[in-house]
Nucleic acid binder design. Sequence first.
DNA 1: CATGAATGAGGGTTCATTCAT
DNA 2: AATGAATGAACCCTCATTCAT
Lengths: 176, 176, 176, 176
Amino acid sequence: MELFAEQGYEKTSLREIAERLDVTKAALYYHFKTKEDIIVSLFQDLTRPMDELITWGQEQPRTLETKKEILARYSQALAAAAPLFRFMHENQATMRDLSIGETFKERMLVLLELVKDPDAALTDQIRCVSALFTMHAAMYVLRDAEGDPEEKREAALEVAIDLVSQAHGQAPRVTR
Amino acid sequence: MELFAEQGYEKTSLREIAERLDVTKAALYYHFKTKEDIIVSLFQDLTRPMDELITWGQEQPRTLETKKEILARYSQALAAAAPLFRFMHENQATMRDLSIGETFKERMLVLLELVKDPDAALTDQIRCVSALFTMHAAMYVLRDAEGDPEEKREAALEVAIDLVSQAHGQAPRVTR
Amino acid sequence: MELFAEQGYEKTSLREIAERLDVTKAALYYHFKTKEDIIVSLFQDLTRPMDELITWGQEQPRTLETKKEILARYSQALAAAAPLFRFMHENQATMRDLSIGETFKERMLVLLELVKDPDAALTDQIRCVSALFTMHAAMYVLRDAEGDPEEKREAALEVAIDLVSQAHGQAPRVTR
Amino acid sequence: MELFAEQGYEKTSLREIAERLDVTKAALYYHFKTKEDIIVSLFQDLTRPMDELITWGQEQPRTLETKKEILARYSQALAAAAPLFRFMHENQATMRDLSIGETFKERMLVLLELVKDPDAALTDQIRCVSALFTMHAAMYVLRDAEGDPEEKREAALEVAIDLVSQAHGQAPRVTR
DNA sequence: CATGAATGAGGGTTCATTCAT
DNA sequence: AATGAATGAACCCTCATTCAT
């Protein structure tokens, strides 16, 4: 996962993976049928939290409270599987060709369905899109910025929650 | 650009590019020194609007009004160079190795500097990050969604403007 | 080595080498990291005698007797690795770019240091240079000439020994 | 010639030549039919002295005096066309494929015929080979050594003359 | 469970050369 | 007299994959 996240899928060769694990290329082929199989395996381990979040979300009533909880859990999932999400974000062109059942984008759209109201104003729908992406953006842009990562995560979550709250017609908590 | 955006940089071979243009591989090498040079050229054409925006922004007073204008102009630049931004989004792993990669992220950070206040609360800083990315996200997620693209763009811009307004301590326009 | 000696380094392609060995090009790359690596390997096998000669020579007293012995041994090394030396002679332009190139010329100069006296008259120094090269020249020019190669080698060695003897102030054996 | 001498024939591309002369590749093709034609032209200019020396030598009586004169003239020709000789020496593998009427080696052998006596003892024949090569070797080995080049040339010539003198049964001038 | 050896397909790149203008 | 544009052939090299052992 480290190699894939650093270099991207195509630019990571089996030779590199084998060297990093200190085994031979042929040994990899004992455990995985193809290169694609390797990354699919990694995904199955790492996307479970996200899938669980989705199924959980689908069973809940579609209240603002639920949405806030979804954002909170998503924020945590994001932090827990940071390299995976980084990989998905940065290798979407590749992901399209990989036989991973639902792509990252599809999953995102399902999640989005849970958060946004298809009958709301367009701006409010976008607020919900933005809420989800805010947490990604915060992770991406603030990666090298100073400050406690946990603190940054919480701040991003707060902004996200504000956004869906506004989408529900509530005035945001004004912070100053 | 079409090929790069569809398939990603690494998976697009010079053979494909040449075939699409109905020339030989060698002919490409008369016009571009390397494969990287091809995409760099595409970028130079397409990032000019962004550069102009930055220099313009740096000459303005750092008021809320200016920031709104920056967002408005950025929204337009984004729409004009949509395939380029899609490519960057989806090929970040590659971008890191390309000589332009760094410069794009730098550009984004400079732009961010113009929009956010380094002394503001962390949440407000993230609101500004989010404002910029909202427009990206809207473009990305709503690409295949129904509705007039121009309408969507304006809605995203509105949300972005709300976010920086809030970061300036102003209550958002409540839309419903 | 045969191909390299016949055609030169640049004009010998990996395709040719692979065909001659009846393997694929890719198979070569399993055994050698680069094309250069192939020739470097050939050299390492073939220059060992020369290295041993040098270390031996450096441990001996710098008498005329030693120098004669060095020439005798060098003559033998030359005969043993004839194709190698032919290659070096005929591909010096290439050798300069190869990572071994320098080392060969350096080796020759070290050997020269063992044979010539830096304080002697210029002509005597050149006699020593000439002594070494005589054996090369003989090999090169007389390759296709008639006569027993071993006999020619011995004659060349005799001339070389005469040259260093003269450089030591001794009258040459006059042969007729 | 500079480029060919520095890098060798194969590794010098027409692009490089064109750039060095500040013309286009196509312009070269107006003046020369092929790449080979370029180097052939250079040779015709530069080997004339050597050819003249050969025809002159063939008309002279085959005395020791003549041979000394040949060596003297050859020494001068060598110095005058140093880069050419360097090129020939270092690119023999290439020379073989070039359609330059007589190769360097052939010319050398003709010259050698003029200097050596086919009926002499083998060692004496080698002395004559060595005489010619001494001047080459001196040029090659002593290129980067300190000292006046002209002085070195004369010393090498002296050694060469000594060698043919000995081949004629004369005791060498002992220098110390 | 693992490896050494090998391969076909394709990668990006460079080259000498051509030709209409 | 010169050039911009193009090309076919070849280059070195890397890749994911296979298979007998």
